[in-house]
């Protein structure tokens, strides 16, 4: 600011550099391990400089984990979560903010509460729903007695079934069922001046026209922020795909990565192929890092506004 603080400046840089090193050191060690052969990785004293095997290891990891196919699957899921979330949050927030009806606040709270319990906490019953997505509706029908009525009248037993295991829908939909994006949009829509709505109405624009021609162009930054956050979130999913997917062709990349080395508890056997595993780790890390660094400005703002 105003004073000259040469010593403190040096200390500041020292602290920040130390922090950077703490954050970068694991990445460096991963790169080093990924660029040696297995013998060199487990050699004593350890190699602390990158070797020349990086490309070979990357190729080996790529082939061993079928990462090409996994990339495609993961990319499809990430895109699905991204667009699904953006579209849903946008129209939901629109329906809540720009209309006046009695159910406004109850609906808002119904969606708001979903922020409280992340998927991990309700994982077991959500899995049951994924096995049959119509289960909730079947239960409703059963409890309300409609199943019985239909059966008595027409003799047809109502049995709704829609299995989401091993499908993109099963991977994507539960990840969309939270309020994060809806909030970001609601906050933004509340800042839209009333006059804009009035002007649109005066010019004869209906709600859909207003949404499409005014709100969506205005919310470009929002979209960029949400897209970045959702891409990273979906790309990095681990627990949910681990459960829903048993068919290899739908496996996601983070799950595949964890299979490159045997579980921690497994004793004996051969030495884990660390060089391949670390090369795989590098490959899996790369896309979200690129996205986050490139979209830094928008994503930081979005993250802070959604509080998540």
């Amino acid at each position: 600011m105003i004073e000259r603080t040469p010593i403190l400046n040096i200390a500041t840089h020292a602290i920040l550099v130390f922090g950077l090193l703490f954050l970068l050191l694991p990445l460096y060690l991963v790169i080093v391990a990924a660029s040696h052969s297995l013998q060199d990785v487990v050699a004593v004293p350890p190699n602390l400089l990158p070797g020349d095997q990086l490309w070979i290891n990357l190729q080996a990891a790529w082939a061993k984990g079928h990462l090409g196919e996994r990339f495609v699957t993961t990319f499809i899921v990430a895109m699905g979560v991204m667009t699904g979330k953006i579209v849903l949050s946008c129209i939901t927030a629109f329906g809540i903010v720009f209309f006046d009806h009695r159910l406004k606040m109850p609906i808002f709270w119904l969606i708001f509460i979903t922020l409280m319990l992340p998927l991990e906490v309700r994982i077991v019953p959500t899995y049951a729903v994924a096995a049959n997505a119509f289960l909730p509706f079947q239960t409703l029908l059963d409890l309300s007695g409609i199943t019985w009525v239909i059966n008595a009248v027409s003799g047809v037993e109502v049995k709704l079934e829609w299995n989401l295991l091993n499908s993109y829908a099963g991977l994507i939909m539960p990840l969309i069922a939270t309020a994060t994006g809806t909030f970001l949009y609601r906050q933004f829509f509340l800042t839209i001046p009333e006059e804009l709505v009035e002007a649109a109405k005066m010019d004869g624009a209906g709600p859909v026209r207003f949404l499409w021609d005014m709100l969506i162009p205005l919310s470009r930054t929002n979209i960029a922020a949400l897209a970045t956050i959702m891409f990273v979130y979906a790309w990095n999913q681990y627990l949910w795909p681990l459960l829903v997917v048993t068919d290899q062709s739908y496996a996601m990349i983070a799950v595949e990565l964890s299979r490159l080395v045997p579980k921690f508890t497994a004793t004996g056997g051969e030495v884990p192929k660390w060089h391949i595993a670390m090369a795989g780790t590098l490959i899996v890390m790369l896309p979200p890092i690129v996205v986050v660094v490139a979209m830094q400005r928008w994503f930081v703002r979005g993250l802070i506004n959604t509080d998540k």
């Binding site: 990095n236 681990y238 660094v293």
Partner: peptide, 12 residues
């Protein structure tokens, strides 16, 4: 340098 680790998946 401080922000990029946000992008990394837990299993990685």
């Amino acid at each position: 340098g401080m922000i990029w680790p946000y992008a990394i998946a837990a299993p990685a």
